[in-house]
């Protein structure tokens, strides 16, 4: 089993050579956690090095969420009532972009064609992008296209969430407040 320790695999599946002179005896105890295995590639033992970092990240996330949860209550409105329609009625924020699309395009486009297109395109991404390089300099087109997609997605959510008032009509007052009122409503 110990052989696995020395001969790891790299992504291409090739077994990396064992270190030339394996350390043993008292030297081993003093070996730093970082060992140079190939000329260009340093590795570390995942345990405890990576596991420790994961623990810290998890702890930080937990503390953050705990603080937020102590400070801010989750929304709870009146009991559901089918005879009182809130105006505007909005989807959850991550689907509000879709709602915004529905406002602008015929339903068959916004509700069906666009989402299907996005999902299919996402699934096909690794097969459509034949460029083997991972360096940003070589991937300008891919990066630009993806950035446009992200910006559009975010923009539609922001518009739907913050710029759509009654009857989902465009409404500046959500963020600017009503003219004549001192504070935003």
């Amino acid at each position: 089993m110990a052989t696995v320790v020395e001969g790891g695999r790299d992504p291409s599946g090739a077994v990396t050579p064992r270190p030339q002179a394996p350390v043993s005896g008292p030297e081993l105890a003093n070996t730093p956690l970082v060992i140079r295995r190939r000329e260009d590639e340093e590795t570390v033992v995942t345990f405890p090095y990576l596991v420790w970092r994961e623990f810290l990240a998890g702890l930080a996330a937990f503390v953050f969420l705990m603080l937020v949860s102590i400070q801010i209550n989750a929304p709870l409105l009146q009991r559901a009532n089918t005879s009182i329609t809130p105006n505007p009625a909005k989807a959850p924020w991550y689907f509000v972009g879709l709602q915004e699309l529905l406002e602008r395009f015929p339903p068959i486009m916004a509700g069906v064609a666009f989402p299907s297109f996005v999902i299919i395109f996402m699934i096909l991404t690794p097969y459509l992008d034949r460029n083997p390089s991972r360096r940003p300099q070589d991937r300008k087109v891919a990066i630009v296209l993806f950035t446009i997609y992200l910006c559009l997605a975010v923009a539609f959510v922001v518009i739907g969430e913050f710029f759509r008032g009654e009857a989902f009509n465009w409404d500046w007052t959500l963020i600017l407040g009503h003219p004549g009122l001192s504070s935003p409503v």
């Binding site: 089993m1 110990a2 696995v4 320790v5 790891g8 081993l28 105890a29 070996t31 956690l33 970082v34 060992i35 295995r37 590639e41 340093e42 590795t43 570390v44 033992v45 995942t46 345990f47 405890p48 090095y49 990576l50 596991v51 970092r53």
Partner: peptide
């Protein structure tokens, strides 16, 4: 895990830790 070898073995023989490879590229962590 006072040294690399014990650390590696711990990762290898622990169910929850074996989701990780024993070693990772430093750049990846």
């Amino acid at each position: 895990p006072t040294n690399d070898k014990v650390a590696a073995r711990t990762a290898l023989t622990n169910f929850f830790l074996h989701i990780h490879p024993v070693r990772v590229k430093k750049s990846a962590v």
